[in-house]
Amino acid sequence: MASNDQRVSLPPSSPIRAPGNTSLLSNSKQGLQSTVFITFTVKGGAGKTEVADSLEPAITLGGATCRFIDVDDGNRGMARRVGKENVTTLDWSTSVTGAAQWVARHAPHADTMIFDLGAGIESSDLPVMAFLGSVWRLLADGGARIVICAVVSTNAPTSTFIERIARKYGDLGEVVIVCNNQDGSHEFPAEVATLPHRKLHLGNLYAGVQAVRLSRRQPLSSVISNPSQGFELASAVMARRIFDFARQPGMKDFVRPQALDRLAELSERAPKRLRFVIGTRSDATDSTIELNARLAQADAALLSPNIDDAEILARAIQYRRAYEAFATRAR
């Protein structure tokens, strides 16, 4: 892809309205403005599709509707994750001439649209970028709120990526930095903290729980609302992660209270502590997570302060039994 760091041309346009609606998107009659999220990242693997996936249940579990647009022609990660029947795809060769027709066709059918772009695509001169620039301008002119999500992770440098995104698209809406704690280290590039943009944080998800999620090619809201048999606790762990993401102060503008209530309900069974990471799908079964959580409880009890020698011995025996049960679990 050829490099092009100039401002994308966003031609002026008259707002397009859905029939009988004051908003270009579906509606905002329940109190929230229609929203368009756009996920950008500087390199593959930073988690832009993960962020898009995580936004969906925070929106739809509150009763709103959502449309995914997969613009990653080289990967189609969004379509592979949630099922191709649940996304609208755009090819990199899509011409700008069809922008108005595309908006008129797709915008009236969702309260929220989530565009998942290919890594580094914002610095290319692919035809689809001019198309998207026109689409986003039409949506903004029609009353939609545009949120540009610059996704950074613990394994991806930012360099001038965020500043470049803000320079190109900042006049369309708000640039938000989404920090994806992919490896659980919280070690993001130091310059992220110095940038003035709103910041959101998406927590780490155990690899084994991620495997459970990816085994279902459905929207995440469906996965956590209707868990796979034998993986209810793993689904609760997913729900807890989205609940923590959605209840951040920076998400208040986008998430309805009903969604938070539903996410809290779905995450009730998620264990508060685990002794070992959930590394594989076999580690994510209900029985294994239960044993893992019991071992964590036994470990915490053993390390409690102000207990006498007799109690230490009793708790050590309990810990040993919990460890043996976990170590000898059926695989």
Rank of each mutant, 00 (worst) to 15 (best):
M238L: 15
A18K: 10
R256I: 11
F243Y: 12
V8K: 11
L202I: 15
M78C: 08
S9H: 15
A296D: 07
H197V: 02
G133I: 05
I146S: 01
I59H: 01
E187R: 15
L291K: 14
A236N: 05
S14A: 08
R198L: 08
A150P: 03
D125A: 13
R167W: 06
R256D: 10
K272M: 10
A79C: 11
F326H: 14
D244M: 05
P257S: 12
D183N: 13
S54T: 15
H201C: 03
Q210W: 10
G143T: 00
S3K: 15
I307R: 10
G20A: 07
L214I: 09
T285D: 04
Q248S: 12
R294T: 10
N226P: 01
F68P: 08
A2Q: 15
N306E: 14
K272Q: 14
R240A: 08
A300T: 08
S134R: 14
A327G: 08
I148C: 08
D244G: 09
N27D: 15
R167C: 00
L266K: 13
A246H: 08
R329N: 13
S235K: 11
G31Y: 01
P12S: 13
S124R: 14
L205K: 02
Q33H: 04
L90V: 11
K29D: 12
L24V: 13
G63A: 09
I38M: 12
D299I: 02
R164V: 00
I114R: 03
F40L: 02
A301C: 03
Q101N: 14
R321S: 14
H109V: 01
R105H: 14
V51R: 03
I177F: 03
V176N: 01
R217G: 05
H106P: 01
R213C: 10
I146Q: 05
G31Q: 06
N27Y: 02
Q182I: 14
T160C: 05
R80I: 08
L126Y: 10
